[in-house]
Computed example of a mutant assay.
Amino acid sequence: MKVVIALAPQMLREFLSSCLKEAESFALTVVAELEDGMEAISAVHEHAPDLLILGLALPRLSGISVINAVHPRHPDMKILVLTDYVDDLYVLEAFQAGANGYCIKDSSMDEMLLAIESVLAGDKFLSPGITAGVLGGYMEAHEKTREPTEWDFITQREREVLKLVAEGYKNKEIAEMLHVSCKTVEKHRSNIMSKLGVHNVAALTTYAIDRGLVKVKS
């Protein structure tokens, strides 16, 4: 079976790849290793892997955007999210987009391998440390009326534009990456600012960092 690993940092990605190659319980071939969201989409379309191991905080496109892009075309591919985000909303967004498992980066290698085995077998997987919180969040989101926030009104495309703006890309660069016109990007930026009630790039960047779309480089 083929595996694509789209994950940062590089050390973790290479370590996981090495472990998969040596694991006797799996017959897995790592066909691509990368840490960029757009490259992840290209790799999935090129290799049609059986398993995608995916981080959420990727450059250019977030892991959620990657899932939304590849899941419709590769519905049988298993997707295991490997991240340090433990907030219920991230977990719920990942599963709603099409993820099969959600594992925390600081899990033991045995737990990561168990996560891989579980999703390949067709089961859902949640790291034990977040299961209780996710169940609570799921109940709140689906059985109670939740007061919507401004985030709920931002479309998936607008979230992609917001992330790229926060990463410092110009309108022309964003237009080229997303295969749209500059005017479309400008419209998205205007809509985002209106919905969030902000008026400059600095405020957009701060919001993107707070939402976990962009990580502050140390």
Rank of each mutant, 00 (worst) to 15 (best):
P72R: 00
I79C: 12
Y102T: 09
V91N: 06
V66M: 04
A99H: 08
S108G: 15
D87W: 00
D87Q: 15
D110E: 15
V91M: 04
A94C: 15
M109L: 15
L120E: 07
G122E: 05
A94T: 07
A69I: 02
N100Q: 09
V70D: 09
G101K: 10
D123V: 01
F95K: 01
Y102D: 10
L80V: 05
E111K: 09
A121T: 12
Y85E: 06
V86L: 05
L113K: 11
A115K: 03
G122M: 02
M112R: 11
Q96L: 10
A94K: 03
I104R: 06
S118V: 07
A99I: 02
P75A: 06
E111R: 13
V70W: 04
M77G: 11
K78S: 13
G98I: 00
L120I: 05
S118M: 07
L80D: 12
L89F: 10
D87N: 11
M109N: 11
H71N: 02
L89N: 12
K124M: 13
L120G: 14
L120Q: 10
K78P: 12
K78W: 00
I104M: 13
L126E: 08
G101N: 11
D123M: 04
D84Q: 13
K78L: 01
N68T: 04
L113Q: 07
L113N: 07
L80P: 15
E93T: 01
Y102K: 06
V91L: 08
L92W: 00
G98F: 09
G63E: 02
I116H: 06
I64T: 01
M112A: 04
L80I: 02
E111N: 06
L80Y: 05
A115S: 13
E117V: 02
I116Q: 06
S65G: 14
G101H: 12
M109G: 07
L92I: 11
S108V: 03
S108P: 12
F95C: 05
L89D: 14
L82N: 10
L114M: 11
I67P: 14
L92T: 03
K78V: 00
M109S: 12
G122W: 03
P75V: 01
V119H: 10
P72C: 01
F125S: 02
G98D: 03
V70R: 03
D87P: 00
F125A: 03
I79N: 11
D87E: 14
E117Y: 00
L126D: 10
S118I: 04
I79W: 06
R73G: 08
P72I: 00
Y90W: 13
Y90C: 08
T83I: 04
D106K: 07
C103H: 09
L92V: 03
S108W: 08
A97F: 09
A115P: 14
I116K: 04
D106F: 12
Y90M: 12
A97V: 06
F95V: 02
G63A: 05
F125N: 00
R73V: 02
M109V: 14
D87Y: 10
M109I: 13
L92E: 07
P72Y: 00
T83Q: 04
Y90F: 15
V66A: 02
M109K: 06
Q96A: 14
V81N: 10
I79L: 03
E93A: 14
V81H: 11
Y90Q: 06
V91Q: 03
H71I: 00
M109R: 05
V66F: 04
R73A: 14
I67L: 11
D123Y: 09
